[in-house]
Design a protein around this nucleic acid. Structure first.
Lengths: 169, 169
DNA sequence: CACTATCAATTAGATACCTAACCATTAGGT
DNA sequence: ACCTAATGGTTAGGTATCTAATTGATAGTG
């Protein structure tokens, strides 16, 4: 049972055996490790592109959410982006400092703070989304759409399996 | 061309549509986002298990490398683990503090520092590796081996595509 | 209408990463 | 033997996360 489990403690010789540039051929090929490396590869790649426009990865996700729907409260934003609230606070602090968003205390419920994009923040959309597209495009180059779809599905199933989903527990 | 690129800026309705527990149904399903979420799911899951034994994620990777080969220099360790050297320094500091490893200045080349597991550090192997196996097992439960293999291969190809590999550039 | 529970945001403090700049040591050429 | 290169490790400083505790505002109940 569960050959997959053994994976974590063992090495499989793989076609494209080299996890990160500086990782030795010793590097592990179990799912967890590969996922970590892909994640970092994505981060670096996108980071490199958007940094040119003065936006950091930490800000990226919140901008994305706000381009989608402006004026969310901080809690709503946290939920959309999938990050804890203190993380949101610090990200918004830096975004506010850079003039990308504005905090507006909600007049009807003074506990809430609504976040609005400034023109500058909104304007970044047309510059930054293509960056993300480039990264995604680069990453998936040469991968058959069916394989990609299956990969995404498998990854989704892993998320659910790992029980990060409250309804699942 | 490149439907994949569009992904990054769009939402696809997916069977298992829910990225993180607290993420709304709005959450993006493009590869980059899913990878990020799986990565965090893995981290949390493993972290929860190994924390019980006083080991943090930052230490885990280095322990793994040392269980595999003891007495590596810090640079070698960094390369095996795929982390920058300052990261290694701080991880080793905490591991040394907790009595998991010992730094020994290399007598033949006094620039180098060899890292040796203490009995305590070595002993954790038999406790911690099963934790990782459990996580891996849980994550891949119900996923056909062929699908898993394909997923890992696709992820590897993405790493190479994203050019984190110097030899590829 | 006062009390308490809940909600929204924040602060405090920890971990895990990174880049850039800096020492200390060794190696190699003259 | 010197001087410069390169090598190995560290420090300094920044970003991105998290959990736990705190503060302020509202809502619900007796």
């Amino acid at each position: 049972m569960s050959e997959s489990a053994a994976n974590f403690g063992r090495k499989i010789q793989y076609a494209s055996e080299r996890s990160l540039g500086h990782a030795s051929p010793q590097s592990d090929t179990s799912v967890g490790y590969v996922v970590r490396d892909v994640h970092r590869a994505f981060s670096r790649s996108l980071q490199a592109k958007i940094a040119a426009h003065g936006v950091s990865m930490g800000q990226w996700f919140f901008l994305r959410a706000l381009w989608d729907e402006d004026g969310l409260t901080q809690r709503e934003l946290s939920q959309r982006v999938g990050m804890m609230e203190p993380t949101t606070v610090t990200a918004l602090n830096s975004m506010e400092r850079r003039g990308l968003v504005e905090r507006v205390r909600n007049p009807h419920d003074r506990r809430k703070v609504n976040i609005y994009l400034t023109p500058k923040g909104r304007g970044l959309r047309d510059v930054l989304l293509p960056c993300a597209a480039e990264v995604s495009d680069l990453a998936t180059r040469g991968i058959a759409p069916a394989d990609l779809a299956l990969t995404i599905d498998v990854l989704h199933r892993m998320i659910i399996n790992l029980g990060d989903n409250p309804d699942t527990i």
